[in-house]
Nucleic acid binder design. Structure first.
Lengths: 227, 227
DNA sequence: CGCCAAATTATACACTCGTCAAGATTTCTT
DNA sequence: AAGAAATCTTGACGAGTGTATAATTTGGCG
C-alpha cells in the first residue's frame, strides 16, 4: 500500500515529494531517450539509483509516474524566451535572438522536444493524457503569444491573427524541422530559422523582402548591429 | 519460412499480394483504432478473418506489416483535393471548398489522421520508419503546393513563401485542431476553417479583412492547362 | 479419386510487461 | 541503544508480446 502523504509530518512529506520528483526526473530522461511506448518501469528504474519495486512505493501506478514526469517537463520549457523578450529593445535583436534560441533548443534539447510530440500524439489515443497535454499546449501558446506581442510592439505592427491561431503554425514548423534534424539533416536548424523568420514577417503584414519598420522605440538613436 | 514470391507463377503472386494488401488493410483499421504502440499482431489478426499465425506467412515480421499498411494509407489521402482544384474556377470557390473538405476529413477520418501523427512521432524514435514517413510527408507537402499554386493563380498573387515552408504551417494547424476535435471540442472544425482561411490570406499578402482580388481570370481560355 | 503444395490453424516458446507483497535495510524517534 | 516507522530490494505472478513450427485444411490437377 502506498503511504498516504496526508498523514505524514511536514518533514516527511518534503522528503517524499522530493524523492518523487527525483524519480520523475529520471523517468523523464528515459522517456526522452527511448520514447513513451518503450519506456518500461524496469528501464526507468535502471536509469535511476533504485530498483523497479520502489516506483510503486512512490507512485500509484505507471500512469501516475508518467504524468508526474510530464508536469515536471513543462516547468522546464515554458519560460525559455522570457529573458530574451525582456532584454530585446529592437525588433531585429528580438528576432535574431528568438531565431537563434529556437534553433539552439531544437538541436540541444531534441530528445525532450521529441518526447513532447510523442506524448501529444499519444494524447490522441489516451484520454487520461489529454488534460496534461492541453495544459502544456496552452502554456506554450502563451509563450508564443508573449513573443509575438513583443514583436508587434517593437515593430509597431497590428495584430492580424490571434494568438491561438498563431501558435500551431510556429509549432508545425518546429515539429517539421525537428524531424528533419533528428533524421540527420544538417541544414534543418538554418531552415527552421528561415521559415520562422518568414512566418514572423507574414504575421505582421510585412512582405518577406520588406525591412522591418522598427518604429523608433523611444530614441531611434542607434541603428547599428544588424544581426 | 515465408514463401518467396519470386518463385511462384504469376497467378499465385497476384493472390499472394492480394491477401497481403487485404491483411495490411485490416492492420490499418486496427492501427487507426488503437494506435501504433498498442496494435499487436493478435489484435490485428482478430480484426481480420484470420488468425495471428497467418501474418507471419505473408509478412517477414511485424515491421514489414506495419510499413506495408502505412504505404497503403498514403495512397488513400494524397489526391484528396485534386478534383476540387481542377473544378474551382474562382478563388472563393476554391477557398470555401478547400476549407470545407479540410474540416470534413478532419472529423470523418479523424482516426486515420491521428494514426498519421502517431506514426510520424514514432519516426522520431525508430529510424526504420523515417523513410516511409518522409515520403508521405513529401506527398502531403506536394498536395498543399498544388492547392496553394491554384490559389495564387486564381487570386493573381505572387508566391512569397516556399511550398516546403508552407506545408508545415498548414499541418501544424491541422494537427492542433485535430487534437481539439478528438478531445470532444465541437467548435474545432469551424476553428480550423477560420485559422486556415487566415493562413491562406496571409500567405498571399492579403490582410485578413481584405476581399480577395479574384483577378477576373479575364480570358480563362488562355490560362488553361496550368496544373 | 488421390496427391501434393499452398494456405491456414493451433500450439509452444522465450521474453517483457505492470503489479504486488513479503522480507531486508535504513532512518528516525524516544 | 531499542523499537518503530519509513524506505528499499527481491522475487514472483499472470497477462501479453513477437516469433517459430508442427498439424490441419483447402484447392487444383493428373
Amino acid at each position: 500500500m502506498t503511504t498516504d502523504p496526508e498523514r505524514l509530518p511536514r518533514r516527511q512529506i518534503d522528503k517524499f515529494t522530493e524523492r518523487r520528483n527525483e524519480l520523475a526526473q529520471a523517468a523523464l530522461m528515459t522517456l526522452a531517450e527511448i520514447g513513451y511506448a518503450r519506456a518500461s518501469l524496469r528501464e526507468i528504474a535502471q536509469n535511476s539509483q533504485f530498483t523497479h519495486g520502489v516506483l510503486h512505493y512512490y507512485f500509484k501506478d505507471k500512469f501516475d509516474l508518467i504524468t508526474c514526469s510530464v508536469r515536471q517537463y513543462k516547468a522546464e520549457c515554458v519560460t525559455r524566451y522570457d529573458t530574451l523578450i525582456a532584454a530585446a529593445k529592437r525588433f531585429e535583436d528580438l528576432e535574431s535572438g528568438f531565431l537563434k534560441a529556437l534553433a539552439t533548443t531544437m538541436c540541444d534539447d531534441a530528445h525532450m522536444h521529441r518526447l513532447w510530440y510523442d506524448l501529444r500524439s499519444q494524447a490522441l489515443y489516451e484520454e487520461e493524457l489529454r488534460q496534461d497535454v492541453a495544459f502544456i499546449d496552452q502554456s506554450l501558446s502563451d509563450m508564443i503569444a508573449r513573443v509575438t506581442a513583443r514583436f508587434r510592439l517593437l515593430a509597431g505592427a497590428p495584430q492580424i491573427i490571434s494568438d491561438g491561431e498563431m501558435y500551431p503554425m510556429y509549432d508545425g514548423l518546429f515539429e517539421h524541422y525537428l524531424l528533419k534534424h533528428v533524421s540527420g539533416q544538417p541544414k534543418a536548424a538554418s531552415e527552421l530559422k528561415a521559415a520562422v523568420r518568414k512566418l514572423i514577417r507574414l504575421s505582421m503584414g510585412m512582405s518577406g523582402a520588406h525591412r522591418p519598420v522598427t518604429k523608433a522605440i523611444k530614441h531611434p538613436s542607434a541603428r547599428r548591429g544588424r544581426n
